Amino acid sequence: MKPAENYILDQPEPYKSILMHLQILIESTFPEVDLQFKWNIPFYYLEQKPFCYLNPSKKKGYVDVAFWASAHLTKYNEHLISENRKVVKSLRYYKLEDINEEILLTVLKEAHQLKGKGFYKKKD
């Protein structure tokens, strides 16, 4: 099992359920993603380029799905949170029921399209 998968399975509830649901949605929509464990969180790469990451904040009680190329995302911007971050924006979930699959998948698909337009850099 990958370190990122172990990390997800080791999380307390509700983080574990949220992370597992997000993992299923992302990996079933984009089977070519590569789940890695970077900076102590689950991080998805597409063609060796950062795509998005899953960041549970136990201190604040949510899970973020964060996007690198967020400045170029145009759909559902009213749901994307920047919160003092210059580059990254995220969709935030406090409980499993908060996940709106239509919004999440639309933003993921738009981020995926940006990958081919040079908005992502290769990992080191």
Score class of each variant (00 low, 15 high):
residue 61 G to P: 03
residue 43 F to L: 05
residue 72 H to A: 14
residue 88 V to P: 01
residue 34 D to Y: 10
residue 21 H to N: 11
residue 47 E to R: 12
residue 69 A to F: 01
residue 90 S to T: 01
residue 88 V to K: 02
residue 74 T to R: 11
residue 92 R to F: 02
residue 44 Y to H: 07
residue 45 Y to R: 14
residue 36 Q to N: 12
residue 93 Y to N: 07
residue 60 K to S: 11
residue 91 L to I: 00
residue 98 D to C: 03
residue 35 L to K: 15
residue 34 D to V: 14
residue 64 D to A: 15
residue 90 S to F: 05
residue 59 K to F: 06
residue 34 D to Q: 15
residue 64 D to S: 14
residue 59 K to M: 08
residue 34 D to M: 10
residue 59 K to T: 12
residue 39 W to Y: 15
residue 50 P to G: 04
residue 35 L to D: 10
residue 55 N to F: 15
residue 57 S to K: 15
residue 31 P to K: 01
residue 72 H to S: 15
residue 89 K to W: 07
residue 56 P to M: 01
residue 17 S to Y: 04
residue 24 I to A: 13
residue 79 H to Q: 13
residue 85 R to F: 10
residue 86 K to E: 06
residue 98 D to M: 01
residue 80 L to C: 02
residue 39 W to T: 08
residue 63 V to I: 11
residue 49 K to Y: 06
residue 63 V to Q: 03
residue 83 E to K: 12
residue 56 P to W: 04
residue 65 V to F: 08
residue 80 L to W: 01
residue 70 S to Y: 02
residue 80 L to Y: 04
residue 20 M to N: 12
residue 51 F to I: 00
residue 78 E to H: 14
residue 77 N to D: 05
residue 88 V to D: 06
residue 85 R to H: 14
residue 82 S to D: 11
residue 21 H to E: 14
residue 70 S to L: 02
residue 92 R to D: 08
residue 91 L to A: 05
residue 18 I to M: 03
residue 78 E to A: 12
residue 97 E to L: 02
residue 93 Y to K: 00
residue 49 K to H: 12
residue 92 R to V: 08
residue 58 K to Y: 06
residue 52 C to P: 07
residue 35 L to G: 09
residue 40 N to V: 08
residue 29 T to G: 03
residue 37 F to I: 06
residue 66 A to W: 12
residue 56 P to S: 03
residue 97 E to P: 00
residue 61 G to N: 01
residue 18 I to K: 01
residue 26 I to L: 15
residue 94 Y to I: 07
residue 59 K to W: 06
residue 86 K to I: 00
residue 35 L to Y: 09
residue 50 P to W: 09
residue 99 I to L: 05
residue 48 Q to K: 14
residue 53 Y to M: 07
residue 47 E to N: 15
residue 102 E to P: 05
residue 33 V to A: 02
residue 70 S to G: 06
residue 34 D to R: 12
residue 93 Y to S: 04
residue 29 T to I: 02
residue 19 L to H: 07
residue 16 K to I: 06
residue 57 S to E: 13
residue 48 Q to R: 14
residue 20 M to R: 13
residue 45 Y to S: 09
residue 43 F to C: 11
residue 74 T to M: 06
residue 44 Y to K: 05
residue 89 K to D: 06
residue 62 Y to M: 02
residue 22 L to H: 01
residue 80 L to Q: 00
residue 85 R to S: 13
residue 66 A to L: 11
residue 34 D to F: 11
residue 88 V to A: 05
residue 98 D to H: 10
residue 45 Y to C: 13
residue 29 T to K: 09
residue 36 Q to V: 11
residue 36 Q to I: 08
residue 89 K to M: 11
residue 19 L to R: 05
residue 42 P to G: 05
residue 75 K to D: 12
residue 55 N to K: 12
residue 86 K to N: 02
residue 67 F to A: 05
residue 83 E to P: 00
residue 79 H to R: 15
residue 82 S to K: 12
residue 78 E to F: 06
residue 87 V to L: 09
residue 19 L to F: 06
residue 84 N to E: 15
residue 80 L to V: 00
